[in-house]
C-alpha cells in the first residue's frame, strides 16, 4: 500500500506540487489524470524516489521513501515517461542488468527476465540492440524492466505512449492482469484509457488535486443529474410548450429535429421526481416517447468541467484579491 501525505515540490520558487495527499490500496489501479504540466510526472518521480519532496511523506508498504529508501525502492517498479534504456545494450542483456541492479538473486534472474519478456511479447527481440528498436518496442522494454524484481507497486507514467492500437489493447489487458498481485498507479492524459483500466482516479491540475473518486461517482456527481434527454414524436412546438408548462421543469433547450415528426429535447429539471409527470403529460397529449434518459457526462466531460470550474474559481479569487488590494476600486 502507498500513502502520500501532504506532498509538495518546489522548483526554485515555483511550487509545482501543492501539498497533495492520497493513497493506493492493495490490488488497486489508480488513474492519475491531468493536463500537460499539471505535476503528474513530478509526483510520480517523488513517489518512485527519484526526486525528493520539498515537504510531506511517501510511505511504501510501511517504508518511508527518503528515510528507508532502499527497502521502499525494492517494492517499486517504475516506468518513467521516457523509458530508461541503454541504446548500446541488447534487450536481454539490459533486462539481466536491471534484474541485478534490483537485487534479484542470480539464480532467479534468467527466469524473471524470460517471464517479463513473455508478458510484454518481446521474446523475439531478445538479441536486438535497443537502439534499433521502434519506439513502441522501447516502451515495452521499459515496461518489462519495471516488472523485474517482482515489485508490489507499479508506477507507470504514460505507459501506452508510442504504441499502436493493438499494443495499447495488449498493455491495457496486461495492466488489468497485473492488478491481481500488484497495486498500480497509472498516469495518462488519454481519458478513455483511464476509464477502461482504472477504478479510481486522481485528477490533478496545476499541482493541486481537484478530485479523487471512482469514475462512476465522478461521472454521477458532476453530471447535472437533473438534465433529461428526451426524444419524442409529435409537434415540436406543442411538446416544447407542454414540457415548459409542467411544474418542476426549469427549461427546455437544444431542440434537434431527428427526422419526420421526431425531435430530441434537453430538459432541465428542478428535481428528478417530475419524470413520471412528463411521461403522463406527453402520453395524454398523444405524443409518443421514443427515448428518455438522464444525461451523464463521460470522464472527458468531467475532466474538462472540473478544470474549467477550477479556472473560474481561481479567476474569481483573483478578482476578489485585486479588489481588496485596491481600496479605490469602485463597483460598477
Amino acid at each position: 500500500m502507498v500513502e502520500i501525505k501532504n506532498l509538495s515540490k518546489y522548483y526554485g520558487r515555483n511550487l509545482a506540487v501543492k501539498g497533495i495527499s492520497f493513497d493506493i490500496q492493495d490490488h488497486e489501479i489508480l488513474g492519475f489524470l491531468g493536463p500537460n504540466g499539471a505535476g503528474k510526472s513530478t509526483t510520480m518521480n517523488m513517489i518512485a524516489g527519484y526526486l525528493p519532496s520539498s515537504n510531506g511523506t511517501v510511505t511504501i508498504n510501511g517504508f518511508d521513501i527518503t528515510e528507508q529508501a532502499s527497502e521502499a525502492k525494492k517494492c517499486i517498479g517504475y516506468l518513467p515517461e521516457i523509458p530508461p534504456v541503454y541504446p548500446d545494450m541488447r534487450v536481454e542483456e539490459y533486462l539481466l542488468f536491471v534484474a541485478g541492479l534490483k537485487g534479484v538473486p542470480r539464480a532467479e534472474r534468467k527466469k524473471q527476465v524470460q517471464s517479463s519478456m513473455q508478458r510484454l511479447h518481446i521474446e523475439d527481440m531478445h538479441r536486438r540492440l535497443i537502439r534499433n528498436l521502434s519506439k513502441g518496442y522501447k516502451q515495452r522494454v521499459g515496461f518489462a524492466q519495471a516488472l523485474l524484481g517482482d515489485p508490489k507497486i507499479l508506477i507507470l507514467d504514460e505507459p501506452t505512449v508510442g504504441l499502436d492500437p493493438t499494443q495499447v489493447m495488449e498493455v491495457r489487458n496486461l495492466i488489468l492482469e497485473l492488478k491481481q498481485d500488484h497495486s498500480i498507479i497509472f498516469s495518462s492524459h488519454i481519458l478513455a484509457e483511464v476509464s477502461a483500466v482504472c477504478e479510481r482516479v486522481v485528477i490533478i491540475n496545476k499541482g493541486e488535486i481537484i478530485a479523487i473518486d471512482t469514475i462512476d461517482n465522478l461521472e454521477r456527481n458532476l453530471t447535472a443529474d437533473t438534465v433529461l434527454h428526451l426524444t419524442a414524436e409529435g409537434d415540436k412546438d406543442k411538446i416544447s410548450r407542454l414540457l415548459k408548462d409542467i411544474q418542476g421543469v426549469s427549461s427546455v433547450s437544444d431542440i434537434k429535429e431527428l427526422g419526420e415528426n421526431r425531435c430530441s429535447y434537453q430538459i432541465e429539471l428542478k428535481n428528478e421526481s417530475v419524470r413520471n409527470e412528463i411521461i403522463s403529460v406527453l402520453l395524454n397529449n398523444q405524443c409518443s416517447i421514443v427515448e428518455m434518459h438522464l444525461a451523464q457526462l463521460n470522464l472527458e466531460q468531467v475532466f474538462l468541467k472540473l478544470i474549467q470550474e477550477k479556472k473560474k474559481s481561481s479567476l474569481e479569487q483573483l478578482i476578489d484579491e485585486t479588489k481588496q488590494d485596491n481600496p479605490y476600486h469602485q463597483e460598477d
Binding site: A48, A69, S70, E71, K73, P84, Y86, L101
Partner: peptide
C-alpha cells in the same frame, strides 16, 4: 542525457 539516471536513482542502490 539518455534519461537512464532515473533507473539508477530509483533502484535500491544508494
Amino acid at each position: 542525457r539518455g534519461n537512464t539516471e532515473v533507473l539508477l536513482l530509483t533502484s535500491p542502490l544508494s
